[in-house]
Write a protein that binds this DNA or RNA. Structure first.
Length: 477
RNA sequence: GGCGAGAUGGCCAAGUGGUAAGGCAGAAGUCUGCAAAACUUCCAUUCGCGGGUUCGAUUCCCGCUCUCGCCUCCA
């Protein structure tokens, strides 16, 4: 049995992954904010979380996977207002889109997918507790803030003390940039570090407000995750995950809210995924390097190819995404597909796999178990594929079966389905089709000169003929 | 300014105190009427630069150069 180790951002070490209590691992992922299409950077995080779950289950662990939908925050409200849509209609559209993308990427469905608007009462309840215990205060305007000074452990995840927090002005002076802050609803805080738990109603929120003991308003963004964690995984659970940017302040604030409210250690293991770079730069709309699955699909790249690229580097490293890397990934996947065809037979991998099922592919699982080293694991996979291929003919039935099973389980762990590629259905011009058919006839007649001539003509028309035993294929040149 | 990550063959990317995985691309061959695909073989005496420790360093230590990320609501 292989034991899964995962780097923990808080202790900055690999830690064994095992449930603190019982036999099920509580696993919470900060999900997408549904205000637009998710981009491949978002998906790097979700794909890695997916691989984590697949590997954990492959080693025999049970996982309770919770991934929320953030449908209530500044962005969803602003966008829905701008588009004159109800918040619900607006977010459900983008949620559907996210689900479609997730399915295309072969992400396992979380066991629970809670949304923020469905957890308003839970959030209000937490605020009440925090006020009662003296960790939060309401302002005259009807907002509630968390008093950061009241939680002495504040900053332990992000090492706040070591980071010598500077103010926005100082950063600006030193040439750094600092995000715009919406001070309009934050000026009445006792301390600049305090963060909002409840935002009093503002005109621009439109109809999106809820009643509370402090008046109409809505919960602060950080609180939703705390509330959903508490409800679906309890006061204390195993692993909390998200993009590296969430480490501070989002996760720091979650710890503060949850631990002060619940009086228990919030999370035992923090799993943060490093950001994806595109063409060696940070993704941004202004650079035009922010890709969605739809963008890449348009360029003829399947979601599985994207998934492969996202797994080609280690998740704690900045991975540089390029369009070229998609082509390389496509070729690599084709190689795996060919191998699968050569193996023949059918094995349906499933989550109830035991580590033994990997058989000759054990090194793949071992690599994944060491902090999800997907790059190393892919290397192991290809090595084994190569050596197996050479001895394929001399394998006994049992060995062949073990190979099939091990390969299938490896694919499952990576989340590759290797479904037959859907060739882009480009319309073939009738005259090209005609020429190709003539050529096929000429070939049957062994009229090689005519064959070659037609091949050239077809090529001139921008197409390439590829023969197989039973017929030909046309592809854009 | 503070904190952090990194620099490995044409590209991507692992890794280890004992002499560089894997993928892509490229080359040759088998096969094929020719192609394509597939398969086989080849492809870094070398891991940013300069020192040091060591029998031995790409891997440990020191210095330097460069790149990149984060620094309050962006996965």
């Amino acid at each position: 049995m292989s034991h899964l180790q995962l780097f923990d951002s808080q202790t900055r070490q690999n830690q064994p992954v095992k449930p603190i209590e019982g036999d099920t691992l509580g696993f919470y992922c900060c999900g997408p904010t549904v205000y637009g299409p998710a981009h491949i950077g978002n998906f790097r995080t979700f794909v890695m979380q997916d691989v984590f779950r697949r590997v954990a289950e492959s080693t025999g662990l049970k996982v309770r996977h919770v991934r929320n939908i953030t449908d209530l925050d500044d962005k969803t409200i602003r966008q829905s207002q701008e588009q004159s849509m109800s918040l619900g209609d607006f977010t459900s559209g983008w949620t559907e889109k996210f689900h479609a993308d997730a399915e295309a990427l072969n992400l396992l469905q979380p066991h629970v997918e809670p949304s923020a608007v469905e957890h308003i009462p839970e959030q209000i309840e937490m605020i009440e507790t925090l006020i009662e215990k003296g960790y939060a205060y309401a302002t005259d305007e009807g907002s509630v803030y968390f008093r950061v000074d009241s939680f002495e452990d504040y900053g332990r995840l992000s090492r706040l003390k070591e980071r010598e927090i500077t103010t926005g002005t100082e950063i600006a002076k030193s040439g750094g940039s600092v995000s715009e802050r919406e001070d309009s609803d934050e000026y009445e805080r006792d301390s600049a570090a305090d963060f909002v738990l409840w935002k009093s109603r503002k005109d621009e929120d439109g109809p999106n407000y809820w009643d509370s003991p402090w008046g109409a308003g809505r919960p602060g963004w950080h609180l939703e995750c705390s509330a959903m964690c508490k409800k679906h995984l309890g006061d204390s659970f195993d692993i909390h995950s998200g993009g590296e940017d969430l480490l501070f302040p989002h996760h720091e604030n979650e710890i503060a809210q949850s631990e002060c409210c619940n009086g228990a250690t919030f999370v035992h293991h923090w799993f943060h995924i490093t950001h994806l770079m595109v063409d060696a730069k940070k993704m941004s709309k202004s650079l035009g390097n922010l890709y969605t699955l739809a963008d890449l699909d348009e360029k003829g790249h399947s979601a599985e190819v994207v998934r492969y690229v996202l797994l080609s580097g280690s998740y704690r490293q900045q991975l540089n995404f390029t369009l070229d890397s998609l082509d390389a990934a496509g070729s690599a996947l084709r190689k795996l597909r060919d191998f699968q065809e050569k193996l023949g037979g059918e094995v349906a991998p499933n989550a109830a796999a035991s580590a033994e099922a990997f058989g000759p592919f054990q090194p793949v699982l071992d690599a994944l178990c060491l902090d999800l080293n997907t790059a190393d694991a892919l290397g192991k996979l290809f090595s084994i594929v190569k050596t197996t291929q050479k001895q394929l003919d001399s394998l006994s039935d049992d060995e062949l079966e073990a190979t099939r099973r091990g390969f299938a389980h490896s694919l499952y762990a990576f989340g590759f389905s290797l479904a037959a590629t859907d060739e882009p259905a480009t319309d073939i011009p009738a005259e090209v089709q005609e020429m190709a058919e003539q050529r096929w006839q000429a070939k049957a007649d062994k009229d090689w000169a005519k064959c070659d001539e037609l091949r050239d003509q077809i090529k001139a028309a921008g197409w390439v003929v590829k023969d197989s035993k039973d017929g030909f294929e046309l592809e854009p040149a």
